[in-house]
Design a protein around this nucleic acid. Structure first.
Lengths: 138, 138
DNA sequence: TGTAGTTACATAATGAGGTTATATAATTTT
DNA sequence: AAAATTATATAACCTCATTATGTAACTACA
């Protein structure tokens, strides 16, 4: 049984990524998402995104070049830099989330009622599984 | 309601990608997966993977360099090249699928029974949603 | 039938996103 | 005060994707 569920979840993840507009990478969106709760260190972002510190430094560079984040000094540690979401970053985050959700909703609307109900009933299970994620709604 | 489901599916996709060992890209795995049913043209692979033809040419180059696929002539069209899975490619495909499925199963085993049941009940809905995909079990 | 158009793939240049290894500066430890 | 550790940055290098363009082969048609 777990076999079938695992297979289904893999297909579902693949499908969701497929139909989702790729304006921004998952890592970039997740990073902006985390920052919406307040500034974080580069290393904290890297750890929670499951990437490396140099990789996150590069991503923060790109996000800063796009004007979505800025670096501020960490008052408690001269080595660290805090990454802070800008107003433009907040707008972009909201916009990208809405676009993604709407792409998914288009497909859900074409879903027969019993299937929609089954998915709704599975939401607590999904919440349970994904609760380890840093509540990024992406 | 669709709102909550869309959100849940996005989180689920993100989670599944997160916990999945990234030995191989989704596109590469999907490509090998399609080829397991028989040789296909570069352009057919590109279209079904939702990528560009030059992108698929490059991917086929890398897969060929790794020994997972080979190019063979298309007897019906001198311009086309068919991409064929090698024995090593089949082994790799099976191995990667197993690794991914096992990572997911580890999480499913820690799932309370009622949640597991809810997911099992949602499988038909998942099949319905993802039926557009080229039955790649990834 | 030969030439014009189209098609299939490859190549080139570019950029995002990721890796490991290493350097630098600031903080801690001893 | 010196040594060790920590936080970030930098460098060199892959993968994966894009657009623009080249080339060879097929198709159509005057």
């Amino acid at each position: 049984m777990d076999e079938e569920i695992a297979e289904g979840l893999q297909r579902l993840a693949r499908w969701a990524v497929h139909i989702t507009p790729k304006q921004i990478s998952m890592t970039a969106l997740g990073t902006l998402s985390m920052l919406s709760a307040g500034p974080l260190r580069v290393s904290a972002l890297a750890e929670r995104e499951g990437t490396t510190q140099p990789g996150m430094t590069a991503l923060v560079n790109r996000l800063a070049a796009s004007g979505y984040v800025r670096r501020i000094a960490d008052p408690t540690d001269g080595r660290a830099t805090l990454v802070q979401l800008t107003a433009a970053g907040e707008r972009t985050l909201a916009d990208r989330r809405a676009t993604r959700a709407s792409a998914l909703r288009d497909h859900l609307q074409a879903l027969p009622p019993e299937h929609r109900q089954a998915l709704a009933a599975a939401l607590p299970a999904i919440d349970y599984l994904t609760s380890g994620l840093d509540k990024p709604r992406d």
